[in-house]
Each structure stands twice: as structure tokens, then as C-alpha cells.
Design a protein around this nucleic acid. Structure first.
Length: 548
RNA sequence: GCGCCCAUAGCUCAGGUGGAUAGAGCAACAGACUUCUAAUCUGUGGGCCGCGGGUUCGAGUCCUGCUGGGCGCGCCA
């Protein structure tokens, strides 16, 4: 980043002195060493404006480039490209930068403490979390971490859907299972819950309430059971998420919105602005006026409110809590809600750009080559807990964010468990452990670790060393990419390439050795590598074991 | 039917705001441990970027029409 920035600034400097303004200069790393380390194609873009050939422009710019830090070895013109070759000393600046900034390397202060909310998982309290929730959980938590790295004050929130018919069905299902356990006739409602876990809840309910529960009125009994089932399931979810390394700042219940009459408030705002109307005895929101494909019902003809109105109220409440940016992480099956929620945010009077739903595609579980079937109806879903028990937190988190959220994810349980090169988590963690091991070795040999931080890096001249330094240089820039594109999978890919660079270096060059200058310089590089892997794993919420 | 997502090596996937000869890993084959962790490394082969048009100096990337797969289109929650 510092090097790329340096090149960019040098080019910009020439343009400004030539009175060419408002031109964006993009400097890229090259893929081919033939083209140097960094390149820019700005001359192509200037060609039309200046009415000169890209080649001539490139030559003119190249001639005027200043190099106050003496980092540029040579500049070559190829067509309209300006290719920059840096000297090896340039890359030493990167190592120094990392050793100075340490755990702050790659952080930015773009957010300046602005309040951002990331709401994710938000599974209904009607059953244990499943693997789909796992992807949403990992994605949301990592994005929240990224926002923190960019200087935002982030709140993680879980929305608890504790109202509605589903909870009544849950209570009825539990009651049926209780009767079953008592050897009575029972019937699980058609749309009820059939999973094994319902029996577990029924069993604990019998223990907790005893026979007295049957003396209550039907209504009273179901109310008790509903509350009991809900709290039980919520505690499961909380445990699962804790095992998954996720802690929410706030568990926000839908019932709170009803108690505070936020629904009425939201409805009033929409009404007063004239965005509602009555038809067929229902109250409608004219969401098509804000780009939705059809208008939506807020209050049904029987007088009850829709889930959508509660959602509008929920988002009104979020804005009232002072968040400047609101992110909702939704599964692909919620795509249909994007347009209407955007519409309602705008109708309430807030900037729809500050509301950002992020959609992730579904997860397919595999075990070796074969797909693991999931069925919601029979309740035989693979739970997040089972997955965590089998592959562990680190592999689970890593695998869930390893792919573009827009792409479906094939999650191979066997691969996630395997302790081999095939498994990218182990590959990256192993690189970290090797770094740590080198430090341990160094200490055993009585080497002065403190000297590493201010050693002479000039003996780092090997291409393998330079490759690592170039990757390390890229870290902050890569994080910007991750941040702006909401694309954590680029971080995992980055860590794998850094680990690869390190393993190559480790295998072919001796680090701890007779030549002390070289040894300290290489240890400095190891130290920088270790730091960057650590920073990256921290963002992912994956542990960095010192020994494996 | 309409909206959105996806399609890149045999497999799983990378390829910010368009840039040079499209990259990894796995699998296959051939090699490397008396020495800092072989959970590693080195080398080889492998491609009409789903198909057809268009935009321009330049397209895997942008626009458009198809094909195939996934998801969504309730006065459900």
C-alpha cells in the first residue's frame, strides 16, 4: 500500500504540474515481472483529452517523474503503459512499516467512530440454528470486524422473532409431544414442528411444570409452554453462537416493538405522509412509489398487522437509535424483501443508501463426495452445533466466508476436518505456527529478539523474500477491497497466498544461521509475516495457534 | 410468466471501479527431510472464460438476446 501509494502520488504529481486535473490515477500490481512491479495505464485514458498517442503521453509523464525517496530502479514504457521497477530497498519499507504498526497494520479510520449496526442470523426461536444460519453468522461477524477495522463503532444485533403464529405452533407441538410422553393420544399440528428437539423441550417442560400444567386453561398452558420453549431455544442459540465465536451486543425482540407501539408510530408516519390507502378493508403501503413491484398490506382486513409492518417499525427503531448505517444480512430466500424494505426506509424519511441488505446464497453440505440431504419438513436438518462439534469453530468460520456471498457454497465436512494441505485453514494456521516456532528456536539459541525490530534489512535480496514483501505490502489495499465490496472471501484467498509465499521461503532458505545480519533480517521478515497472518485471522475470528 | 444470483482447467474456486500472455488449490505424473515442524516445498501437463450479438484503443469484467442451474414472487411468519 505505501509503495503503490507512492507511485500513484508520483504520477499525480506530474499531472498536476502539467495542469491536468480531475484524472483518476490507478496503479496496479503487475502479473508479469517483465512489466515491472507496478504499472499504470493512465496514458490511455488521457489520450482522448490530450489528443496525443498513449505512447507519447506515457513517455512525457515518465520523463517528469520525481523520486524523492529513491525507490524507483527504472521506468519502462510499453505501448501506453508506464511500468515501474522498484529497487529491493523499497520493499524493506514495508517490513519496517509492519513492525512499527503491528496489530494496527491494515487499520483505517474511515468511519471515525460512526455508529453502524450489523444485524445478522436473526433466526426464529422455533428451532436450533442450522448450517445456513452459520453462513450468515460468519459473514455478519466478519463484516462487523471489518467495519471495526475501518474505524466504525459497530453494534451486532440479533432480531428475535418472538411473535406470530409460528410460536403458537411451536407451543402446540411441544404440548403434543408432552402428551406423547405421557402415553396419551396426541396430534402434531399440520404446520407444526416435527424435529427431535421438540421432544427434548417437551421432556424438560414436564419436569419443570409437573402435572399442574394440565390444570391450567388451554390458553394459559400454551402461553406458558410458548414462553418456556422460546427461552429454551434462545439459550441453545446463544450457546451455539458462543461456540461459533459470536457475541451479540443486543438481542432485540419483536415483542418490544409491540409493547412500545412502534408499529403504530411507523404506521402514523406513513399515513401522515400520504403513502398509505385503504382497499378491501386493509391498509396498504404504496411501496410502488418507491420502486417496489407491488403495494403491500400493513394492516389486514381483520385488523391485525402484518409481519412487514413490524419490520418497518423495527427499522424505524434502528434509525431512532442513531445508527448512520444499517446492514442486514439475509439469506437468499429473503431477496424478495429488499425492494419493499428499501421503499419503507425511504418513505419513513431516511436515506435508502444508508440501509444495506446483504444477501448470501444457500449452503450445500457435502461429506466427501456426496451431498448431505436436508429436509425442513422432517426436521432432519444438520444443525450448526453438529457441524461445530465435528469440524470446530475455526474451520467452520473460515469455510463459511471462503466464497463470494453471491455464490452458493459447497461445504465439505471431510475437507474441513482434514489436517492436510487440502484444508486451507490448516495451511494458513500452519504458516503462523511455523513463524512462532522460529521465534522459539531463536530464543533457545540465545538470540536477541529485541534486535530484530531495528536490524538492517538490506540483505533481504532474494526473490522469495521480495515476493513475501510484495504480498505483505498488499494487505491494507486488499482490506479496502474487502471492505468496499463486502467480500471477506478475498481475505481468505489473500492469507492463502501469503502462507504459500512463506512456506516457499521457509523451505528453500535457511533463516536461523551463522550470518547474523542475514538472520536478523530474515527474522524481521518472519515477524512481519506472523503479524499480518495474525491480523488477518483476527478479522476472520479464526484462532492463530502458536503450535500445531 | 416476472425479478434476482450463478456459469472460468477433469473437480472446487480467485479474477475491486474494463488493461498487457486468464490465475490458485485439488486430482494426475516426476522429485525434495543427517539440518529452523514434510500439516511443507519444487517441477510437468492441462482453457472456444456457457452460446450469439454489441460498446472501444482494449471485454472473463460493461450492455443486449438466448441456454442451463438456484432462490424469490401471499391480507404466511
Amino acid at each position: 500500500m505505501i509503495l503503490k501509494q507512492y507511485i500513484e502520488d508520483r504520477v499525480l504529481d506530474v499531472l498536476i504540474k502539467s495542469d491536468i486535473n480531475n484524472i483518476e490515477v490507478v496503479v496496479d500490481r503487475t502479473q508479469n515481472p517483465e512489466f515491472g512491479h507496478y504499472t499504470t495505464s493512465t496514458p490511455f485514458n488521457l489520450s482522448k483529452i490530450l489528443k496525443k498517442s498513449p505512447y507519447d503521453i506515457a513517455r512525457e509523464i515518465a520523463e517528469k517523474i520525481q523520486d524523492p525517496l529513491a525507490l524507483i530502479d527504472k521506468i519502462e514504457i510499453k505501448g501506453g503503459f508506464i511500468n515501474f521497477f522498484l529497487n529491493t530497498d523499497a520493499f524493506h519499507l514495508v517490513v519496517e512499516d509492519i513492525l512499527e504498526k503491528k496489530e494496527r497494520y491494515g487499520r483505517f479510520n474511515e468511519g471515525q467512530g460512526k455508529k453502524v449496526q450489523v444485524e445478522f442470523v436473526s433466526a426464529n426461536p422455533s428451532g436450533p440454528l442450522h448450517v445456513g444460519n452459520g453462513r450468515g453468522g460468519a459473514l455478519g461477524d466478519v463484516l462487523a470486524n471489518i467495519f471495526e477495522w475501518f474505524g466504525y463503532n459497530v453494534e451486532r444485533e440479533f432480531y428475535v422473532n418472538d411473535m406470530g403464529n409460528q410460536m403458537n405452533l411451536l407451543a402446540l407441538s411441544v404440548e403434543a409431544r408432552m402428551r406423547e410422553l405421557l402415553g396419551e393420544d396426541f396430534e402434531i399440528p399440520q404446520e407444526g414442528y416435527h424435529g427431535e428437539y421438540v421432544k427434548d423441550i417437551a421432556r424438560s417442560a414436564l419436569e419443570k411444570f409437573g402435572n399442574g400444567i394440565w390444570n391450567l386453561s388451554e390458553e394459559e398452558r400454551l402461553k406458558e409452554l410458548k414462553e418456556f420453549a422460546e427461552e429454551t431455544i434462545l439459550s441453545w442459540q446463544r450457546e451455539d453462537l458462543a461456540l461459533f465465536g459470536i457475541r451479540f451486543d443486543c438481542w432485540y425482540r419483536e415483542s418490544t416493538l409491540h409493547k412500545n407501539n412502534t408499529l403504530g408510530e411507523a404506521l402514523e408516519i406513513l399515513k401522515s405522509k400520504g403513502y398509505t390507502y385503504e382497499r378491501d378493508g386493509a391498509i396498504w403501503f404504496a411501496s410502488t412509489r418507491f420502486g417496489d413491484e407491488k403495494d403491500r398490506v400493513l394492516v389486514k382486513s381483520d385488523g391485525s398487522s402484518t409481519y412487514f409492518l413490524a419490520d418497518i417499525a423495527y427499522h424505524l427503531d434502528k434509525y431512532k437509535r442513531g445508527f448512520s448505517h444499517i446492514i442486514d444480512i439475509w439469506g437468499a430466500d429473503h431477496y424478495g424483501y429488499v425492494a419493499r424494505m428499501k421503499a419503507s426506509v425511504e418513505a419513513l424519511g431516511y436515506d435508502p443508501d444508508t440501509f444495506e441488505p446483504i444477501i448470501y446464497q444457500i449452503v450445500h453440505l457435502f461429506r466427501g463426495g456426496s451431498a448431505v440431504r436436508m429436509s425442513k419438513r422432517t426436521g432432519e436438518m444438520v444443525s450448526l452445533r453438529e457441524l461445530l462439534d465435528e469440524v470446530g469453530k475455526d474451520a467452520a468460520r473460515y469455510f463459511f466466508v471462503m466464497r463470494d456471498p453471491n455464490s452458493q457454497l459447497d461445504f465439505d465436512i471431510e475437507l474441513a476436518k482434514s489436517q492436510s494441505i487440502n484444508n486451507p485453514v490448516y495451511y494458513v494456521q500452519y504458516a503462523f505456527a511455523r513463524c512462532c516456532s522460529l521465534f522459539k528456536q531463536a530464543e533457545l539459541k540465545g538470540i536477541d529478539i529485541g534486535r530484530i525490530d531495528h536490524c538492517d534489512l538490506s540483505c533481504l535480496q532474494d526473490p522469495l523474500e521480495r515476493d513475501i514483501m510484495m504480498i505483505l505490502e498488499d494487505f491494507p489495499d486488499m482490506l479496502k477491497n474487502v471492505f468496499y465490496n463486502r467480500a471477506p472471501h478475498r481475505l481468505t484467498a489473500y492469507l492463502e497466498s501469503l502462507a504459500k509465499g512463506f512456506h516457499s521461503f521457509y523451505n528453500s532458505l535457511r533463516i536461523i544461521q551463522e550470518n547474523e545480519d542475514l538472520m536478523y533480517a530474515r527474522m524481521a521478515l518472519v515477524s512481519a509475516t506472523r503479524q499480518v497472518i495474525k491480523n488477518g485471522l483476527d478479522i476472520l475470528g479464526v484462532s492463530a495457534p502458536e503450535k500445531m
